[in-house]
Amino acid sequence: MNDALSHPAAPPYVDRDQHSVANHLGMWTFLATEILFFGGLFTGYTVLRWAHPHAFAEGSRHLEFWIGTANTAVLLTSSLFVALADLAIKRDDRRAARRHLVAAGLLGAAFLGLKGFEYFQKFQEHLVPGSGFDAHGAQPALQLFFFLYFLMTGLHALHMLFGLGAIGWLLRQIGRGAVSRERPDAVAIVGLYWHFVDCVWIFLYPLLYLIGG
C-alpha cells in the first residue's frame, strides 16, 4: 500500500485481491451493458419477425446452413481453448497457456474468414440491403431480414475482432511475464468476454439459420 501511495498513477487498491475482484466485477458489469446493447437488436428482430414470419423463413433459407453450423462448432471450440488457457496459467504453465490462446485466436480468425466468405456470397446474390438489393420476387420484408442479418452478425464480428486483439495482447503479456500464476486475472477476464461473444452467437445461429422450416 505504501508503494501505491508513493506513485500517483498506481491504481487505488490496497492489495492485489481487491484489485482482482474489482477487475472481475468491472468485466461482469461491462457484459451487462453488452447484453442490453445486443438486446435492442434482438427486440427489433422479434418485432419484425412477428410481423413477417414468411419473409424471415425465406431469408433464412437463403443463408448457408453449413457455414452457420461450422462456425458454431469453430466458435465453441475456441471457447474451450480459452478455458484451457485459463487453467494452464493458473498451474503456471505459460507455454501451454500461450499455445491454447493461439489455437483460440486461429479458430476465431477461421470464424471471421467463413463469415466473410458468406458476406461475399450474399453480395454476389444481391442480398445486401441498401446496395442494389434484389428480393428475387419474394416479399419486400426480405430486405429487413437481411438488414438484421448483416447488422447483428456484423456487430458480433466486430466484437470478435476486439476479442482477437485482446488475445493478441494476452499473448504478449504472458510472454513478458506480466500475466503469470501470481497475476492470472487477465486470462479469466478476457475469457469472460470471449465466452460472452460466443453466447451471443449461440442465440444468433438458430434465429438466423434454423428458422427456414
Binding site: 451487462a32 451493458t33 442490453l36 446493447f37 438486446g39 435492442g40
Partner: peptide
C-alpha cells in the same frame, strides 16, 4: 449501465 446501451443501438 443498463439503459444507455439501448440508446446506443437505437
Amino acid at each position: 449501465v443498463l439503459a444507455t446501451p439501448v440508446l446506443a443501438i437505437t
